[in-house]
């Protein structure tokens, strides 16, 4: 099948993309034939013509607009990489841009006129919640995230596939992103772990006891684990 002309529904109407290969007179003729063949489907449609790098003169654009007009189709805008074509379009008072980001989005979708259904549900990701202090000798292993409401004392171990959040003092050994996820983080109201690992990185707490405890977040940045203020 000939794919030199593709049609797609977008918010602004119809996006008609004409491949840059081939002679314009052939292609514009084919577009007209296509519209004729579809008949009522195009009637009243607002068309955005996407032409790629092809250079068209003003009279060529005016011609195609006229032909569309005769078939009840309105040429609204022309998208092109060619400044000459854009210039020609502007002289005909055609728009030369959609919301570009939207276009990029739309292009990745199949021909679909309805907007996607809105799902109000936020699914989040699975994790484990521990509502007490984890003492020396206790361990938690989870493929998801781990949240502790309490302290994690020295000698306690948490290994999580995801993030580790401690609403309390963290003094034990923690390993976030244990499956290799370097985007995993470790957060604590007082971050003073015996040892902290994220994915394949490992670090220990700096030895400055004078520092006033503050909520901190440890993450991998520039190939090492850094602690930043957790806010």
């Amino acid at each position: 099948m000939d794919d030199s002309i593709t049609l797609k529904g977008i918010k602004e109407g119809l996006l008609v993309t004409v491949k840059p290969e081939g002679r314009w007179s052939d292609l514009s003729g084919r577009l007209v034939t296509l519209i004729d063949a579809q008949g009522s489907f195009f009637r009243g449609a607002q068309v955005t013509l996407s032409l790629g790098p092809r250079e068209l003169r003003q009279n060529e654009l005016a011609n195609v607009r006229k032909q569309l007009d005769e078939r009840g189709v309105i040429l609204k805008a022309v998208l092109s990489d060619s400044t000459a074509t854009l210039e020609a379009a502007r002289k005909l008072e055609l728009r030369t841009a959609l919301h570009v980001t939207e276009l990029a989005e739309e292009q990745s979708e199949a021909l679909e006129l309805r907007p996607p259904p809105i799902d109000p549900e936020e699914y989040g990701s699975p994790g484990v919640m521990v509502k007490r202090t984890l003492r020396n000798g206790r361990t938690i292993h989870s493929e998801g995230h781990v949240v502790v409401l309490g302290d994690v004392n020295a000698g306690a171990v948490i290994v999580a596939g995801g993030d580790i959040i401690v609403w309390g003092r963290l003094r034990g050994i923690v390993h976030a992103g244990a499956g290799g996820d370097e985007s995993a983080v470790v957060c604590a109201l007082h971050l003073a772990p015996t040892q902290l690992r994220i994915a394949g990185y490992i670090t220990i707490s700096p030895d400055d006891k004078q520092r006033k405890p503050r909520p901190e977040k440890a993450l991998v940045r520039n190939g090492r684990i850094e602690a930043v203020a957790w806010e």
Binding site: L134, R135, N136, G137, A154
Partner: peptide, 13 residues
């Protein structure tokens, strides 16, 4: 203190 912590954890458990 470390051992006491362990023991408290075991009692809790």
């Amino acid at each position: 203190v470390r051992d006491a912590d362990r023991i408290i954890g075991l009692v809790e458990a």
